[in-house]
Design a protein around this nucleic acid. Structure first.
Lengths: 193, 193
DNA sequence: TCTCACATGTAACTAGTTACATGATTGC
DNA sequence: GCAATCATGTAACTAGTTACATGTGAGA
């Protein structure tokens, strides 16, 4: 009944109470659990979770800022999250626009394709560097808890390692494709437009 | 104006004329360009591409089967595909349910979490094996064209290598997470339901 | 006759994006 | 007064999934 997005929000709230605004900030930058949503999707979803009694909220007045609704998970919410985390999951179909483009890049002129792939490689290397930095922070802060998979610190570390592996793989692949295009003479295909 | 799905279809049709049914078969099993769609999305999209003159079709009668509409790309379609393949592309947010679940798996009991991750590892190793098999076929069939990035064979090979790298990375990560859970005593967290 | 693979579509719904809308409070 | 950040929402649209619907022709 609860959507994947709902579980993403529960997963954040199971670690600490947050407002819709806080959640939006975490999910827009994708730092958290490698899911993504905009505030326009988050606010209605929080209302649904609240209606289903999986979360509750309190309005917190602030001196220097507008009041906010701070949400926390209920016992029912924790149970649902717990159950969902290891429920059967099929292989999900990959939908990756970068790979899709590579599939038709044999039509492109080789210099433009090489430049495109080198640029993509850089974007992913930058993201990789951000993740590596965050990983170093985590490892410095609390190395003991990172070995205990029943702590949220371990779970954060695990998702981060996944992100690092993913970005490294994409970046290397982009480099490999770029190299193939760079080995070709610049005008080996005719540009049309 | 044309959607990513539209370019996915153009990318397939740029290699060979296909019916909606053929495309659905390719995209359901995800063998092709690592995109995915159902026939209910494909048929209307083909109609839109045809309205935009990016593809054209002919009704082909068959002796032993019902007639089909065979689509092929037009010149305009090839130009659009060519242009799109190397147009600027931002980092796309990752939305991966497996990683999302790992983010909340610190709540789960360790034996269930370990079993879940070992099962996921196996699913991805199986997929990896399928890709490796297809890769071996490609390498055996036409090793020369696989080094020339202006051939569709190279593009297929590139997407396949991307899939192989992706699946290997996920499988290894699943194994690493599973190991962490396996090192813990079985009842270290209380199951709730 | 019935099931299966081939073949093409539409309808109803869920998920996600972009744009619109409002209001509080702080600092310039 | 004005822009920026904090804070919460709704509306309109696009993308994608699930279910419904129809029909051909082959083989059991």
């Amino acid at each position: 009944m609860t959507s994947t997005l709902g579980f993403a929000l529960l997963g954040l709230l199971a670690r600490q109470p947050l407002s819709g605004y806080d959640i939006a900030a975490l999910l827009e930058h994708g730092v958290g659990p490698f899911w993504h949503a905009r505030h326009s999707q988050i606010y209605p979803e929080l209302a649904r979770l609240e209606a289903a009694r999986l979360v509750s909220f309190q309005v917190v007045e602030q001196r220097d800022r507008p009041a906010k609704k701070v949400y926390e998970v209920t016992g029912i919410g924790v149970d649902a999250l717990h159950e969902w985390s290891t429920a059967p999951l099929d292989l999900e179909p990959i939908r990756d626009e970068l790979t899709l483009r590579a599939y038709s890049m044999w039509l492109a002129d080789t210099d433009r394709a090489a430049a495109f792939m080198r640029h993509q490689e850089q974007l992913h290397r930058d993201q990789l560097a951000r993740y590596e930095g965050y990983r170093a922070e985590l490892e410095a802060a609390d190395p003991v808890r990172l070995t205990d998979p029943t702590t949220p610190e371990f779970a954060t570390y695990a998702t981060l390692r996944r992100g690092i592996g993913f970005e490294r793989e994409v970046a290397d692949w982009c480099g490999w494709v770029a190299e193939a295009f760079e080995r070709m003479p610049a005008d080996s295909t005719a540009a049309a437009t």
